[in-house]
Design a protein around this nucleic acid. Structure first.
Lengths: 134, 134
DNA sequence: GCATGGTTAAATGAAATGGTTTAAGTTTTA
DNA sequence: TAAAACTTAAACCATTTCATTTAACCATGC
């Protein structure tokens, strides 16, 4: 059965990985080679990427591009920029500073290092003031 | 090119639809039958569903199930329940009431009708107090 | 050096997906 | 009610995807 993008095999491997098993250990359990476990895991992450990109497209469908937060930017400067840009187009952002930082961080936790942005972040906003990040 | 789950064809159709065109109008523009536009559009929504399910799986991988908000529940009762359940397992929710309602609503806007929940919503929480909805 | 953990490339077969047509159905609405 | 809008089913073919194997390749740590 395949509910979602991930195959049963891929979910199985991800779960074992989450438990801290090595690829070799997993290979032994599911009776295949570690190379295969590696490729299955890799395919899983590619599928997850695709899923994220798909939903991002959805956002851009009814949201307009607000601004780009450049890599290296301080988080607090970033939210300042977001508020400023939103004001320019007369949309009130639906989040306070704290909420905004939380939204940013949870959109893709790996993208932040402490107070700094690691990669460029595209910011979209809906007419209702909801934010999406790409 | 296919960046994400949706094919170029599918994105094209979704964009035209967002502009309010009928399937027949789109069919004329892209030189095919309206039946085909229908199936393309349908496939697009199936892919979007898959994308959502995929990310939901990711959440459940490192989040634990907190509670189920039953269809018909008042939103304000729902957030009360969420706070109560989180307290039981000694996790502090990372959102205030307003932020929590926003998170809920944007997780799947069609699922809410005014102050009420239309379909059951599964609530997951991470150790850090982040919430996900399934 | 050599065991361990991880990654990569090439090849293969089975399964699925995507776009298409044709043709038969609903539902909506003017 | 009749036209317009939308949905569904069946069949076709080309392309892609998945899991798999084998065999090689980089690190790291002892």
């Amino acid at each position: 059965m395949k509910q979602g993008l991930l195959t049963d095999r891929q979910k199985e491997v991800l779960r074992f990985r989450k438990q801290g098993l090595t690829q070799q250990q997993i290979a032994d359990i599911i009776h295949t080679s570690k190379a295969n476990v590696c490729t299955i895991e890799k395919a899983a992450y590619e599928n997850i990427e695709k899923a994220k990109e798909t939903l991002e497209f959805l956002y851009t469908l009814d949201a307009t591009h607000l601004c780009t937060i450049r890599s290296g930017t301080d988080l607090f400067d970033a939210i300042g920029e977001i508020y400023a840009e939103a004001e320019k187009i007369h949309i009130k952002v639906r989040y306070d500073s704290i909420g905004l930082i939380n939204r940013l961080k949870e959109s893709n936790p790996e993208r932040f290092k402490g107070r700094f942005v690691r990669d460029d972040v595209e910011v979209y906003i809906t007419e209702e003031g909801d934010l999406c990040f790409g």
